[in-house]
Nucleic acid binder design. Sequence first.
DNA 1: ACTCTAAAATCAAGATACTTTATTTTCGAG
DNA 2: CTCGAAAATAAAGTATCTTGATTTTAGAGT
Lengths: 154, 154
Amino acid sequence: MNTKRDLEIRVMMAARENNISSILFRNSIRSRVGLNITDSECLSFLSIKGVLTPKDISHYTGLTTGSTTAMLDRLENAQFIRRKPNPDDRRGALIEIHEKWIETSRPLVVGLQKEQAELIASYSDAELEIIADFLTRFTDNVKKYTEMIEQDLI
Amino acid sequence: MNTKRDLEIRVMMAARENNISSILFRNSIRSRVGLNITDSECLSFLSIKGVLTPKDISHYTGLTTGSTTAMLDRLENAQFIRRKPNPDDRRGALIEIHEKWIETSRPLVVGLQKEQAELIASYSDAELEIIADFLTRFTDNVKKYTEMIEQDLI
DNA sequence: ACTCTAAAATCAAGATACTTTATTTTCGAG
DNA sequence: CTCGAAAATAAAGTATCTTGATTTTAGAGT
């Protein structure tokens, strides 16, 4: 059937556009705040993952440990992150977001967050179940293939 | 109601996780292929937007025109993009993806693309309508606020 | 308890990428 | 047909990244 395939393509395109738009959104913020791409990516990871080790961060960003140290120095100087001792491993540190970054970014993101919350609230429970389920499965696939590429299985 | 709000938060979190996972996926690819973050972002934009001018690219990436020129030189040397004359403006150029990049990246993305297509195909028309509609509205909000930040309205 | 290998983070030197400023070419308004 | 401005490039200086070495500590093996 033709209509069906059109619909499937529409969903695929919408998912891609969504990802691109989120990159452009963050680019607009980092241009405003004066951050480079890697520093901004680091803050994004921290804001969704919570506390991370420098090792985690260098893995996620794809930077070497050397440039991760330098990046964390920059972000710490700007008071956008904080280094804490790692209670489980005295060699390592834990990185968390500093309130100053929250305060700096809040005015730029709060309006969008509110609109997205309103958009979501406009759907019924049944619809939200479908959406959440789809997004989760879609993301799980992405994670699975990321893992495969990292482990040289592809 | 409590269940309802949990569901809303679940959707919001799933949307964020989805964006982060797509960044991590691209990072895994660029690590493998040996591209830096900006070069990889540039190829992402080109692959979804099609043909772009260097001006567009410097806008999307947030780079100055100087570094955009340097980046396009790198990508052209690697045969990942092609510069074409712009028929509408002899000052400018048009940038398009070179087949070599398609061939280089295909083995790394084709498996995921197939699984995502299967996932999407497993939904009914009614469900896909809901999903496409949600993604489109969600993305439109992001675009709207990106525009506002770029125009200093926030 | 005691090595010993390896991991986490850092540092310094050299390589790469980015910004700033200036220049060339072409557009488009008046 | 002039003139200010836009698109792309180039070169010099600054910032960031990689590589390789170093320090500290974890954890496995004896």
